[in-house]
């Protein structure tokens, strides 16, 4: 799995801080990961975990001030994206790497027609004229399942429903056939039936184009269905990296385990009490010296409160890919998973 040939994007030791009057908030703290060609990488975490900031930092979109990228590299095509000039960065954004956001209402300009907005992408990155761009735009809209692309091109964003707008956003993101698509909560604002449509569409497009997707979400269900590998973030740091199957079968970080167990399910026993992680999410401005999860963790030992665990490779006999966990007690968590498994009766 460590084959760096296939890595389209590699993030090394990324740190982002925000200077506020309560002190420095380390929104992202020493995060390293990579994306392989054509895969879907899930980035999950709760609000304030730094997942969206990580996503924005990749394309240099951190608002400054108050945000500052402290350290790190984002390697793409042999270049460090964080060192590029604004001009060079613009050539990559929307072209080699594109993004879709949570709210399709606000990510489209309400004053321009869909055609103007789609064609602009091709004008900037391909140097096409509006007339040349139109058929390509129509084709793009057709690909994302918009019933009458020509009609859609001439309409304004407010004339489309939320689901349609998100389709337009996806079409726009894929116009230049990017290597990587960064999707920040792409279905959170949508209803479940529309979410199902969009997720199916994204999976299909990924298959057709071979685009790598980084899916930032808080929804464990979405990750389970879409991602090949998952990064779990907590309080600005990576808690665990694993293949989706390994993570859901045998989480090795106490936080991932707690998170998975607290998701209400559509099957199994629902009468008892739902498992819940005690305590409140941490205040990023005053994190504890040790592991940020220690105050809420049932596996915590004394050492956890003063030493911060690093992301290290863990041994898991059944692992389908490399497992990285930032927890000294990972082996105990794994043992608990294995002990509980027969009782579950197996998911398959």
């Amino acid at each position: 799995m460590g084959d760096s040939e296939n890595r389209v994007l590699e993030v090394k030791d990324l740190s982002v801080r925000f200077d506020t009057h309560q002190g420095t908030v380390r929104a992202v703290d020493g995060v390293s990961f990579y994306i392989e060609e054509g895969e879907t990488l899930g980035l999950v975490g709760e609000s304030g975990s730094g997942k969206s900031v990580t996503n924005l930092a990749l394309l240099g979109l951190i608002p400054n001030p108050p945000g500052v990228i402290d350290s790190g590299q984002v390697l793409f095509d042999g270049k460090d994206l964080l060192k590029l000039s604004i001009h060079e960065m613009r050539k990559i954004r929307g072209n080699r790497i594109s993004m879709i956001f949570q709210d399709p209402m606000t990510s489209l300009n309400p004053l321009l027609t869909i055609e103007q907005q789609l064609a602009e992408v091709l004008e900037i990155h391909r140097g096409m004229s509006r007339r040349e761009a139109r058929p390509l735009c129509a084709k793009g809209l057709g690909e994302v399942g918009i019933p009458s692309p020509e009609k859609c091109l001439d309409s304004y964003p407010h004339e489309l429903s939320g689901g349609m707008r998100q389709r337009v956003m996806i079409a726009m993101a894929l116009l230049c056939d990017p290597k990587i698509l960064l999707a920040d909560e792409p279905t959170t604002a949508l209803d479940v039936t529309i979410q199902a449509q969009i997720l199916e569409l994204m999976a299909k497009l990924q298959k057709d184009h071979g685009t790598a997707i980084m899916l930032v979400t808080h929804d464990m269900g979405v990750v389970a269905g879409q991602a090949d590998r998952v990064n779990v973030m907590y309080a600005g740091r990576l808690a665990e990296t694993a293949s989706t199957k390994d993570l859901f079968d045998r989480p090795m970080h106490p936080y991932s385990k707690g998170l998975l167990e607290s998701v209400p399910r559509l099957f199994g026993d629902a009468s008892g009490e739902l498992f819940s992680v005690p305590g409140q999410p941490p205040d990023l401005a005053s994190l504890p010296a040790g592991c940020a999860f220690a105050p809420r963790c049932s596996y915590a030992v004394d050492a956890c409160t003063n030493t911060r665990p690093e992301l290290t490779v863990q041994i898991d006999a059944n692992a389908t890919s490399e497992r990285l966990v930032a927890c000294t007690e990972a082996a105990r968590v794994l043992a608990a998973d294995l002990a509980a498994e027969p009782a579950d009766g197996g998911a398959s």
Partner: peptide, 27 residues
């Protein structure tokens, strides 16, 4: 039925195996 089938399950094994009823169009 469609609503239930559209809900993603937090379990990759279930997700991979099931046939989803995807409703056409918008509400």
């Amino acid at each position: 039925r469609a609503l239930l089938s559209a809900v993603p399950h937090a379990d990759p094994a279930v997700e991979a195996g099931r046939e989803r009823i995807v409703l056409e169009g918008d509400v």
